[in-house]
């Protein structure tokens, strides 16, 4: 009986110690690389973010404490694609999200009450076709009969359709496989697929891993670029206009820092995006980083809406007025010279 009692006490103590250790680690401040600031008297903002280099200004603002200076405690909720980040916003799991334009188009066509408040990155060369030479792919038409991967519901899917159309590749003769960017790189290395079409940095990583001499790369900046945007729900914007202005203000300060401190900025973006500086630099060199609202966005949104309706990716019958889903009010107060929409 005494032995049983001792054993029970020992087990109970062990459980208490384990719980204590767990509580310590759970409440321990900050993820790796994040600077610790005093977050009292701040407003918490849940940010659904794809931590790609596209989100450079956000990473710089976070690292340098610009959000906190504005009284915002921005908490990252990372996702592997902008589409998933947008889904988190739509599902009420985030206050603000980063997203490319195609997921925004599809969400608007699905009558989602979202609002784009700024574009933070734009690129015409961000999406590339990476194909294996040993699959017999040397020109675009060689993609017929091959297995190609892209992401579903995002810019690469739109680019893929436009690419196939432009180069007269019969879509019915292409096997389309939808994977995440990381899975695509692995699948290409293992020769499970013959090519993939996706945004950076996956193409650069594939080139590094497989070798440029073994790959055929197609780049066509005339087809489509991609915009990277800050998106909120309309009702959140109505109740939190001050928060959004402060968020954008922090990004504008980050933009100024980036212009004056390219090396430090590169290091920050590499750290947050999880890539080495060389790869990050290759990606950033193809991108225009800045807080803007211009007609590039509306042009893409309309083209994508037409594509989605034509391919029955939406039940919508007509192209909506996207101006109802772009709110320039906040950026006009923070950086009016770059609101040209």
């Amino acid at each position: 009986m005494k032995n049983n009692h001792k054993r029970l006490v020992g087990i109970a103590l062990g459980i208490i110690i384990l719980i204590g250790i767990s509580i310590f680690f759970i409440t321990k401040d900050t993820p790796t690389g994040h600077v610790i600031y005093d977050t009292t008297n701040t407003k918490t903002v849940q940010l659904a973010i794809n931590t790609l280099p596209n989100s450079a200004l956000i990473h710089i603002a976070q690292e340098n404490g610009y959000f906190l200076e504005q009284g915002l405690d921005v908490q990252y909720k990372p996702f592997v694609t902008g589409k998933l980040a947008l889904d988190a916003l739509l599902g009420g799991g985030a206050d603000i999200a980063t997203s490319a334009d195609v997921p925004i188009t599809l969400a608007v066509l699905a009558n989602q009450e979202i609002s784009v408040v700024a574009t933070v990155e734009y690129s015409r060369d961000n999406i590339r076709v990476i194909a294996r030479k040993d699959s017999g792919i040397n020109k675009p038409l060689d993609l017929e009969g091959k297995k190609i991967s892209t992401t579903k519901g995002g810019g690469p899917m739109f680019y893929t359709d436009k690419f196939l159309e432009k180069y007269n590749i019969d879509k019915s003769k292409v096997s389309m496989v939808y994977l995440t960017p990381n899975e695509m790189v692995t699948a290409l290395i293992k020769k499970d697929i013959d090519a993939f079409i996706v945004f950076e940095p996956a193409p650069s990583i594939a080139i590094k891993e497989i070798g440029i001499d073994k790959l055929t790369i197609f780049e066509d900046s005339d087809i489509y670029g991609e915009t990277w945007n800050i998106v909120v729900m309309k009702d959140y914007a109505d109740k939190n206009s001050d928060t959004i202005k402060k968020f954008l203000k922090a990004l504008v300060i980050a933009e100024e820092f980036m212009e004056k401190n390219p090396k430090e900025s590169l290091a920050i973006v590499a750290k947050y995006s999880g890539n080495d500086e060389l790869t990050t630099n290759q990606v950033l060199s193809k991108q225009k980083i800045g807080v803007v609202l211009n007609d590039v966005l509306t042009t893409y949104l309309k083209e994508e809406a037409l594509w989605a309706i034509k391919n029955k990716l939406s039940t919508a019958q007509y192209i909506p007025d996207f101006n109802e889903h772009i709110n320039k009010e906040y950026l006009l107060e923070v950086k009016p010279k770059d609101v040209t929409i």
């Binding site: 066509l109 579903k152 939808y178 899975e183 699948a187 939406s314």
Partner: peptide, 21 residues
């Protein structure tokens, strides 16, 4: 896991383009 047909694949794809019907 890289399917391009099937009920499960289609459900996942349709969710991504908001074809909930």
């Amino acid at each position: 896991l890289g399917a391009f047909a099937g009920v499960g694949y289609r459900i996942s794809f349709l969710q991504s383009v908001y074809r909930i019907d």
